[in-house]
Design a protein around this nucleic acid. Sequence first.
DNA 1: CTGCACAATGATGTGCACAACACAACGAAG
DNA 2: CTTCGTTGTGTTGTGCACATCATTGTGCAG
Lengths: 230, 230
Amino acid sequence: MNTESRDFTPSARDRFDRMHSTIRTRICLLDYAPGTRLSEEALAAEFGVSRTPLRRVLVRLEGEGLLHSVHGVGTFVTDVEISELAQTYQLRLELAELTGKLGAVTPKEELWGEFKALSARSKALLKAPDARRFAELNMDFFIALLKLTTNEPLRDICERLYFQTTRIWLKSVFASKIDLADEVDVFDREVHDILRALEVGDLHAAALIQRAHISMSFTRMLNGAGRSAP
Amino acid sequence: MNTESRDFTPSARDRFDRMHSTIRTRICLLDYAPGTRLSEEALAAEFGVSRTPLRRVLVRLEGEGLLHSVHGVGTFVTDVEISELAQTYQLRLELAELTGKLGAVTPKEELWGEFKALSARSKALLKAPDARRFAELNMDFFIALLKLTTNEPLRDICERLYFQTTRIWLKSVFASKIDLADEVDVFDREVHDILRALEVGDLHAAALIQRAHISMSFTRMLNGAGRSAP
DNA sequence: CTGCACAATGATGTGCACAACACAACGAAG
DNA sequence: CTTCGTTGTGTTGTGCACATCATTGTGCAG
């Protein structure tokens, strides 16, 4: 998780995690939009390594459904069909609710501070909407929510599906800047409501709220796609 | 989408899938028991390729939680702690039930035939219990059940968790040969009950039966481990 | 002008040699 | 006899050169 806790151990595994996390974040935050071709050589040069260790990372990301390599053509960021996206969202709904049932734990002091900071960032974003900041905050908040369950396999799967789908949703949000303010507003309410539920200690309610917002986000995306389509 | 429709294209991707599937099956069927060290060189020689493409497969399997490579030491088949195994099983229970809710479809003619064949194999196994055959049948039956839902992400996750956990359960079953006959008997009833539910067209009931059996399997494993532990 | 064969280009995939690393066996100092 | 340093051996990780593949541009025939 926090690979930067140790000062610096240039071991193989640390480099792998660094590169993996970096590229994955870039994909999720649309630095590499769906369909973008990634240059192995350029990335290898950026990280100061050869193609070999970099390809290791790409293979892993391909296994996570974020990349797709084709011999002789290139390595591309995957795009997700609406039909498959709908299936994934349906699954995410159920998994989000499961988060509140399987190994749910009330946040500790440290996590509380994290949530407070996230809430502050949300409030700040309300007054000055920014696409990039919104994407980052959304991701950080989701990762923080994942810490509410101790069921690691469930966390891994939720995280995996998040990185798989949220970027598609973000793409549609970024497509029409008019809706960004609305999305930020809705998101702030989600943060507010979930924190409220957590304060009461009702983890199941928090999960249900999250589920509801995931569902509504997808619905808004479908509607928005229908409107802003060329 | 369906790369296996063409008769045979000895392309890179096909070789990758072949090696991946082969090694994964061996791990699940305990040909490579947890803790076993895999020789990259030997495997590469077996498949008639260099270490490079083979390592690609190993990296993928490591991402699926089946292998674990350590620099300078070796590549080992992962073992799963009881605590994590319990979490995974808890999750599998919920996912099994979801299978009956998300995109559940009644089996087609082809799938019916498959189920009939599986039932026959189960009956045959009843009269002549065999560890290896049991492991294979268990896997084939699970894969067949997965075809009852059209939700691909859910299928992928269930399959992934199956390969992750069932081998641990099988290990405990194989540890005490006395229980093998009982397990085969229980399994045959599971097949029978699920097929019965499918014939009626009640997919949710089939999923619930499966869920119950997964739960009971884990419980028996815990008890059995307590008894046969040295 | 159109259509096709073909070479040129650039991408990923592969093979091989070597570096980095962990562990074990060994031996000398205490 | 114990203990620590050292070396040997086998493993995974890395870098590089080349093979293989798909695309594209080009030139010639129609």
